[in-house]
């Protein structure tokens, strides 16, 4: 995983609440067995509409998605995170994220920045008025800035540390394999086995 410290890029204002993972990437695209190449599936139903935000010429090359509340609800598909990252997004900003989506993002290095809905509205306004405005997301300071507007954002402190260090979760856990073994030695015999 690449280290994440500060990211600056242009933003896409997605004026929708409850953007579920079936909208982010429909099930049809989940049949693939690779981990990359999902950019064509991102918002595929909505992208058929020429007025959809990502189809507008002024929002090409965006890397910061600003969305309404309850982003990433529904299915646990990590493909949603892969599709956003494959498309070029580094950060999603919303007032509320679904738990599993936020967890998946943290594992992959996609930053989910939580701000108040009023800050989301402010960012929508700034980006819609001047799409070329650079949006800067500083993970160290936990601050988003755009055209003189500044807001703090929330992120889980452990996820923040892991993103900033670019660390692999499994490698971290395997340092504690002796503790896993000790736990296993004490598991009750009535616990079921699959075979």
């Amino acid at each position: 995983m690449d280290k994440f410290t500060v990211h600056t890029g242009t933003g896409a204002p997605l004026r929708a609440s409850n953007v579920d993972t079936d909208q982010i990437i429909p099930a049809e695209y989940l049949k693939r067995i690779t981990r990359h190449g999902f950019e064509d599936g991102l918002f595929s139903a909505w992208r058929k509409d020429e007025n959809f935000v990502l189809n507008k010429p002024e929002h090409q090359g965006v890397s910061v998605l600003v969305a309404g509340p309850d982003f990433g609800t529904g299915s646990s598909r990590e493909h949603a995170v892969w599709a956003l990252m494959d498309y070029g997004f580094k950060v999603v900003i919303s007032s509320r994220f679904a738990d599993i989506f936020r967890g998946n993002s943290g594992k992959q290095g996609l930053l989910t920045a939580v701000v108040d809905q009023s800050a989301v509205e402010q960012l929508w306004k700034i980006i819609e008025e001047a799409p070329e405005t650079p949006v800067t997301v500083d993970l160290a300071e936990q601050i988003i800035t755009a055209a003189g507007f500044t807001t703090k954002f929330e992120v889980d402190s452990y996820v923040r540390w892991r993103l900033m260090e670019g660390l692999d979760d499994i490698g971290l856990t395997l340092k504690h394999v002796d503790e896993i073994e000790a736990f296993e030695a004490k598991r009750p015999s009535f616990k079921p086995k699959t075979v």
């Binding site: 990590e78 599993i100 998946n104 594992k107 979760d169 499994i170």
Partner: peptide, 8 residues
């Protein structure tokens, strides 16, 4: 859980 967690 997501696929990264499945692997974990």
């Amino acid at each position: 859980i997501g696929t990264s967690e499945v692997e974990h």
